[in-house]
Amino acid sequence: MELYFLGTNAGIPSLQRNVTSSALRLLEERGTIWLFDCGEGTQHQILRSPLKLSKLEFIFITHLHGDHIFGLPGLLSSRGAQGATTPVTIFGPEGIQSFVETSLELSQSRVNYPLEIKEHRGGLLFEDETFKVEAARLEHRVDSYGYRVTEKDRPGSLDLERLESFGLKPGPLYGRLKRGESVEMQDGQMLHSSDVLMSPKKGRVVTILGDTRPCEQVVPLAADADLLVHEATFMNELEDTAHEYYHSTAGQAAKAASEANARQLLLTHFSSRYKDAEHLQPLLNQARDVFPNTRLAEDFALYPIHRRE
């Protein structure tokens, strides 16, 4: 599980950064990628990245401001033109279906693969045997949502030394024990999976927020997250400006990470006034004063999400 950033700027693109989009790479877990927001130029960013549109499974839209959705029509139509046939599902606020369908219809764009659009107002959006995705509304000028992706715990690895001590050789019985079943050995005794399975592998939690002012919904969404992605449009000195425009400062993002007991904080959605890494360094310092394990998201940067021991 890795998070790859395709754009980290707020509002409009700059020479240094594109507008908002990030991809959760689940190649080992599902063989797919999940996209979060799709600002203008996202498909161009993907062309310069190791990502493949054919692997796209879900798109999660936080809100309907242009710097988060203007790249959708082009990306969807290009995916079809490249020959992708697997389904794509878009999750987003009310209005996302009208935007996508109208854009594709008026431009006479063809999508030759199953495309489903699910509008929501938060809550549980998706769940299967491996992952769960929940959403909650934040505080912005329009309905804006944060997403919490929870990977479910996985069974521990087989203890090969203990298996050998029971006289078992690799084969079908290994698979049954791995699945939690009990098996009968040659001497008639029952061997239970709990006897030979090591500790379960703890699932990871990633929380990716849309644009927001500080609000009470952030902490539950980010509680004990292994990675929190939080906007930090402004430095602390512009807290009044951030409040007026429904955004957050670096210090406010760090406070949220601390209160949520997150493991790592990634800041993104930077105002264009902070032109490069040098201008962003004070913003990073302000966040680290509150939450030391903070990093700045960068376009074309990959951030692994490590499993807890």
Rank of each mutant, 00 (worst) to 15 (best):
L27P: 02
L27I: 08
L27G: 08
L27V: 08
E28N: 09
E28C: 07
E28I: 05
R30P: 04
R30N: 05
G31K: 02
T32C: 15
T32G: 01
T32D: 12
W34A: 03
C38Q: 10
G39Q: 00
E40G: 02
G41T: 00
H44N: 15
Q45W: 01
L47C: 15
R48V: 05
R48E: 13
S49N: 08
L51D: 02
L51V: 08
K52I: 11
K52M: 13
L53Q: 00
K55D: 15
E57V: 02
E57T: 05
E57W: 07
E57G: 03
I59H: 08
I59G: 10
F60M: 10
F60W: 09
I61E: 05
I61G: 04
H63Q: 13
H63C: 10
H63P: 03
H65W: 08
D67Q: 07
D67W: 12
D67H: 15
H68N: 11
H68Y: 12
H68E: 13
I69G: 01
I69R: 01
F70K: 09
G71E: 11
L72Q: 09
P73L: 06
G74T: 09
G74D: 13
S77Y: 09
S78V: 03
G80N: 06
A81E: 14
G83C: 11
A84S: 15
T86H: 09
P87E: 06
P87W: 05
T89W: 10
T89P: 11
T89K: 14
I90C: 06
F91Y: 15
P93I: 03
E94R: 12
G95L: 04
Q97T: 13
Q97A: 10
Q97V: 03
Q97G: 12
S98K: 12
F99I: 10
F99P: 01
V100P: 11
E101A: 05
L104Q: 09
E105S: 12
L106H: 08
L106S: 11
Q108P: 03
S109Q: 15
